[in-house]
Design a protein around this nucleic acid. Structure first.
Lengths: 210, 210
DNA sequence: CCCTCCATGTGGTAACTTTCACAAAAGGTA
DNA sequence: TACCTTTTGTGAAAGTTACCACATGGAGGG
């Protein structure tokens, strides 16, 4: 049970295992081996065991993993055994869609506050409150929010990120097409849909050229 | 100029360099060294040179890279010197937002057709046509579309992907939270926003625990 | 035309990830 | 209890990716 330097890919796979385990649970399967789990989610079984070994011994030799238990263990390890409040900054097209997206709620995230420089005429779902961007620091500090999503124009993303960090946010998911850089202590993940499409065209073009 | 087995991370970085080069061009900077470019986008300069070396020699020793030239070279390598038509399947919350998202157009992608099982009462932007899902194969074949975005419910994502592949699509960007698996010949990229948030909570939780 | 300067392109190596392969342990059976 | 089957947990090997360090070769000046 060593806790140092967990590779990011491992963490991503934990999330994947979690999804598979949920499926297995729904199907009424109670025990699963790394081989079967691996087949399901397209990961080498040894890889699964190594990933899990970073955090402890969750299996039973000769048997496998108890689905329900492993699920809870992974949730605990990833900090998903509680509900996380998330702030969303930038209620444009994408921001609005993200507010309505049900996938977050299902995974224990609650988009409870949103910010924009324009607060008129926006449709905000139940349970979420819209504030003017100038109130960002105050509201985030008051509610002790640690997670934020940035969906503003790329020219403002870096500045918004810095303000969020100063307000006490510790994790940022950035949808603007700039690589945000912040001092250590804040984790940033950049989701760039343009890049994703470009990677696809690259491989499509390659195939033709070769 | 070897063309075999380009790592995916390299391709992603090419896209990043492209963005930086656009910025540099806007600022009127004509020549850039790998050192400066590296500082801008947070990549080691040797890394940049290695990445580019997969595709040829684009720089001039003692000088650096000519911004405009390198930009065009990267665009050519990635197949971005043309406009790509993209089909979108699933016009729900997320799908609608993606249709309206301007970032794609700016990078040479045109969301020209969309499909859903429900075609009534959807607001579709100019230049994009909405069809019933049953017409998917026909329309995609007729227009020779090679790229598609999936934003349907996760329970249908795999099936939609298979239909797209049969209709001739070669690259799929999947926003549904399932890892889509297809036979070789079709490139799939999964964008999973739930996983992204979970990776953040993992690192936030870790920091506290350690 | 030669010499100096400077940033590229690249061989080698270090760091990291994935996979293999097997000893260790748990559970069932006689 | 002893033995057999099964699957974990893990050390070591293989495979990738990132980085260092320097020879190479343009460009510009004298």
């Amino acid at each position: 049970m060593r806790r140092f330097k967990i590779p990011e890919v491992t963490v991503g796979r934990l999330s994947l295992y979690l999804r598979c385990l949920n499926e297995l649970e729904e199907e009424g399967i109670e025990v699963v081996s790394s081989l079967d789990l691996g087949r399901r989610c397209g990961v080498n079984p040894a890889q699964i065991r190594k990933d899990l070994a970073y955090f402890g011994e969750f299996g039973t030799r000769g048997v496998g993993y108890y689905v329900k238990e492993l699920k809870e263990d992974i949730k605990r390890v990833m900090g998903l055994n509680k509900i996380w409040e998330v702030a969303l900054v930038g209620v444009g097209n994408l921001g609005t869609a993200l507010l309505r997206y049900r996938g977050f709620q299902q995974h224990g995230f609650k988009l409870s506050v949103a910010f924009d420089i324009q607060t008129e005429g926006k449709e905000i779902p139940e349970g979420c409150q819209l504030y003017h961007a100038s109130e960002m620091e105050r509201v985030i500090k008051e509610r002790g929010i640690k997670l934020a999503i940035i969906s503003v124009h790329y020219s403002q993303a870096q500045e918004v990120a810095e303000r969020l960090a100063r307000a006490g946010v510790k994790g940022i998911l950035n949808f603007a097409p700039v690589r945000i850089r912040l001092p250590r202590g804040v984790v940033v993940r950049n989701v760039d849909m343009g890049t994703e499409l470009e990677i696809l065209t690259f491989y499509l073009t390659m195939k033709g050229t070769r």
